[in-house]
Design a protein around this nucleic acid. Structure first.
Lengths: 349, 349
DNA sequence: GTTTAGCACTCTAAGATTGCGAGTGCTAAA
DNA sequence: TTTAGCACTCGCAATCTTAGAGTGCTAAAC
């Protein structure tokens, strides 16, 4: 089996995928010959198709239908055949308008996700990962609750507030808690979370001996907050919007599939896991069909990109839609969006 | 047209609705005569059906199909014909197990909604309305942000934290903000939100003259927090779970309808408006089909009930599903759930 | 060797036709 | 007032038909 694919075959594959993306119908040899721009007959195309089929790039749903790209074919297409169209001026302006730089992370994420969904007519998603290492602790506040529990409020960065309930050994008076909070604020406020988590807490612990009782307790509270599973381990958050648009695609009109998909969205956990795998990669990444290793996404593709500040990846954004999507449009949209978000975040620092 | 419906006709309607709920198929006269338990012939049933049809209680999808209840028929059914089955011991135990009393309101709402969805096999919903009047302010905290903005953190009740950004006329130093917060905490902490909003603010404003500059400013911040549209006007929150179960029902297998429904869920606003209308009513309330005055719910019914503490309505919970639902099971589930939630809340006070 | 035209063959999607079963409405008798 | 009988209607599913699209193969042309 010749792994080599001739130039003409490649070109034909490209035209076939494009045509299939446009129409959703299997592409026959005659139509392909016409659209290819090549001056060849349908019969020649048929021969080429036979080759491509042998290589697993295309398949026919039944004997006398046209050819449809397989996932492998899509992969080939996006990897080496795709020519992306640059975005129009207008589209870029729309995005930068929508990118309100102020507002909490959540709000930013929502507006970006809405933008992606709107532009691509598919579902948009934005992941805000572990309150990034970049972020610094501003303030800690404790409030007593009933039982041996304390409500801890952390203010991080500009306007992210996290609250967690921690358990302690006994009741504390508001005054005691105030004292503990003051102490921790003195020691920790203004430092980056990363530092807080490791260096500072360790230092504090080491010099524990010379400290009075109250400080001990303050530190063990802080440990619950920062070292233990911590508030942010699962507060990995992500925003998904425009899911309902996916109902429009006929490859998903199978209620069962749709239901699986929506249940996956509700779970979040599994999608997040998937997005985690994108964190390593650079630039636009594409999962086609079952490449995600995740059954319900069989007929879907994801196009994602990371956004970053100072070279550090902060999160992932992208869209999810049917495998048969207009990659040449979607890819630049996701790409530019990631870049604009990166820029916006850098600027607001 | 005789508005009176004979006893037999009523009984037949009841059996018809029950049968239709079970099977989803139009009910023919022969089957109805058999199932009714009455010793009458199909022909007699047909006559009764003709009467019911004239009254708008049933209709036939086409000439030679059986009869199907109309929304008016459902209404009659739930209003006067329905006999609800009490819940089994087991089912009640399941609920009280799930009702973890601690945890934030959000968590409670989620677990209740999940329970409703699970028991009824439909979508469950729980509304947590305007941070209830019952609740009292525990603490206020300010943090300076860039620009003329301040992050205000309100702790309400046991563990509800709300944060809002307010705009002010100039930059404030942390010390100033601390001072303002201290002042407000002294004056307002421990009071019920309802009081805070009206009485205290008014009082403070009246005696404003004698106060120093800083206090003035503290009060205008507080006004932004409590009097203006306020954090809680739209933070009316509600939890919806199990939506995907609705995909299972064939009356909703029409993708377009499903999509409308899910979009309504995403909007939240409109559903909330609908739930608001339940706040006045007492006990279990039922919206059948277009009674909600809301197009996308045409083929759906809502069964809701309020939950309350000390006679004051705190929120609404219920389920949403196809009009053809097993009311006799769903109604007691919603009813008991509301009562258990009420009890749980009263206990945790 | 590659490309092309021709041709027989296959398969589907969309109508059209039919028979069947379920159910109705009406009438006349009990 | 109830019932039995009967003609009639309708929808559904099964079957058949046809048109169209597309393929694979072969033999001829380049």
């Amino acid at each position: 089996m010749a792994e080599e694919i001739g130039d003409r075959a490649q070109h034909l594959l490209k035209v076939l995928v494009e045509s299939y993306i446009r129409s959703g119908q299997p592409v026959g040899s005659r139509a392909l010959a016409r659209d290819s721009g090549l001056d060849v007959s349908a019969a020649t195309v048929r021969n080429a198709m036979a080759d491509l089929e042998e290589l697993g790039m295309v398949s026919s749903p039944h004997t006398s239908a046209g050819r449809v790209p397989t996932n492998k074919g899509y992969r080939m297409f996006v990897d080496s055949l795709l020519t992306v169209k640059p975005l129009s001026e207008r589209e870029i302006i729309t995005l930068s308008d929508q990118l309100g730089v102020d507002g909490s992370k959540q709000e930013l994420a929502t507006s970006v996700s809405d933008y992606l969904a709107g532009m691509t007519e598919m579902a948009g998603m934005v992941m805000i990962p572990r309150t990034a290492k970049r972020s610094s602790l501003r303030h800690i506040e404790f409030m007593p609750l009933s039982g041996h529990r304390i409500l801890a409020i952390l203010v991080i960065n500009e306007q992210d507030v996290q609250n967690t309930v921690i358990k302690v050994d006994r009741q504390y008076t508001p005054a005691e808690l105030q004292q503990a909070a003051n102490f921790l604020n003195n020691e920790l406020a203004g430092h980056e979370l990363f530092d807080v988590r490791h260096r500072i807490l360790r230092e504090l612990r080491e010099t524990k001996d010379g400290m009075e009782q109250m400080m001990h307790q303050a530190i063990s509270m802080a440990e619950q907050l920062f070292v233990k599973p911590g508030p942010e381990a699962d507060s990995d958050d992500f925003v998904l919007s425009g899911q309902t648009r996916l109902m429009g695609f006929d490859e998903l009109s199978n209620i069962e599939k749709l239901r699986g998909l929506f249940e996956a969205f509700n779970e979040k956990q599994q999608i997040l896991q998937l997005l985690d795998r994108c964190l390593d990669g650079d630039g636009v990444q594409i999962f086609i069909g079952e490449e995600s290793g995740y059954g319900v996404l069989d007929e879907c593709s994801m196009v994602t990109s990371s956004y970053q500040v100072d070279g550090e990846v902060l999160g992932i954004l992208g869209v999810i839609g049917p495998t048969r999507m207009a990659y040449e449009r979607v890819i630049p949209i996701v790409d530019i969006t990631a870049k604009m978000v990166s820029a916006a975040l850098a600027q607001s620092k």
